[in-house]
């Protein structure tokens, strides 16, 4: 059984005593009268700067609702949400929009790219909304697209890309503005294994650069890449885990095992998702399963 220990540092070693996100007794219901369904029932959560928090739970437990509330995409019925020092739960829609453009980046399960804008324009969009000039936006977009390995697809339309490529564009868009907080809602939910690994690697790379991440996922393998895992069930936090003894070394071992699994199949550099089949073929099923079993043990997950 993994014991709970408050995290003091992230895997990168950056001090994390500065809360970047705080929720207190957050509640949200949908529907009216007899049809009302409580999606969240008093969720309290703190995320510190530079931390990567994964929120896991079964379908309908309120993961996405929590993310939407935290990101200002929706308003809670009750409770408090603070981004840094800013209380956002009672902000007007306009003020929340302004907050999002300054401080929050989103990555969605269904990518949510604007279909009639090319890759570069999609990445630039968030910057343009934030008031960044055309040239600066274009330059920054090129930079982040290069970081995610899609520089040569800058003029392609989203419909011509694979799922993994689209999600990488979405990640580029989310981080382009250097937000305080990136919220990822099932970022690998629509992807195959190889593409998922690629996306996780990207998120990890951003995390190493100091990006604060809150990620909703139902995939434990993906969750294991985070600093802390928060378990939701029926709209409530039922547990929080950080792998015990998983100080940086242990976490690194996990990361290394994970990285081995990836590199064993992927090869170096910007592997395109067209090579996903090769990646998958090179990684042995046993290795993959072994990594997953290790992660489950580390997290003390057993059967859910």
């Amino acid at each position: 059984m993994v014991t709970m220990e408050p995290p003091t540092t992230t895997s990168t070693g950056t001090p994390t005593d500065t809360p970047i996100l705080t929720t207190v007794d957050l509640a949200r219901s949908y529907g009216r009268g007899e049809r009302a369904r409580a999606a969240l029932r008093g969720v309290s959560l703190t995320v510190t700067a530079g931390e990567w928090v994964a929120v896991v739970g079964p379908s309908g437990c309120g993961k996405s609702t929590l993310l939407h509330l935290v990101g200002g995409l929706d308003t809670p019925d009750s409770g408090s949400i603070r981004i840094g020092d800013e209380e956002i739960s009672a902000l007007s829609p306009t003020r929340r929009a302004l907050l999002r453009r300054r401080r929050i980046g989103f990555v969605f399960q269904s990518y949510n790219l604007v279909p009639h804008l090319n890759v570069s324009a999609n990445v630039e969009l968030g910057l343009r909304v934030a008031g960044v000039g055309r040239r600066a936006a274009r330059a920054r977009a090129a930079e982040v697209l290069d970081a995610v390995g899609l520089a040569d697809l800058a003029h392609a339309l989203p419909a011509t890309l694979s799922g993994g490529q689209q999600q990488r564009v979405a990640i580029a868009r989310a981080v382009a503005g250097r937000p305080d907080l990136v919220l990822a809602d099932e970022p690998t939910g629509a992807l195959d294994t190889a593409a998922s690994r690629r996306v996780v690697e990207l998120l990890r790379a951003e995390h190493r650069r100091g990006q604060t991440l809150v990620m909703v996922t139902h995939d434990y393998a993906v969750a294991a890449a985070a600093d802390r895992v928060v378990f939701l069930r029926d709209g409530q936090v039922v547990d929080e885990r950080r792998p015990a003894g998983r100080r940086p070394a242990a976490a690194a071992a996990v990361a290394a095992a994970d990285a081995d699994a990836i590199t064993a199949g992927a090869g170096a550099g910007a592997a395109s998702d067209g090579d996903a089949a090769d990646e998958h073929a090179d990684a042995s099923p046993a290795d993959d399963l072994g990594v997953r079993n290790d992660l489950a043990d580390l997290l003390g997950l057993g059967s859910w």
Partner: peptide, 12 residues
């Protein structure tokens, strides 16, 4: 699409 643009920070 409108939701996307709103999520990115476009005001109503």
């Amino acid at each position: 699409d409108i939701g996307i643009v709103g999520a990115l920070g476009c005001t109503p």
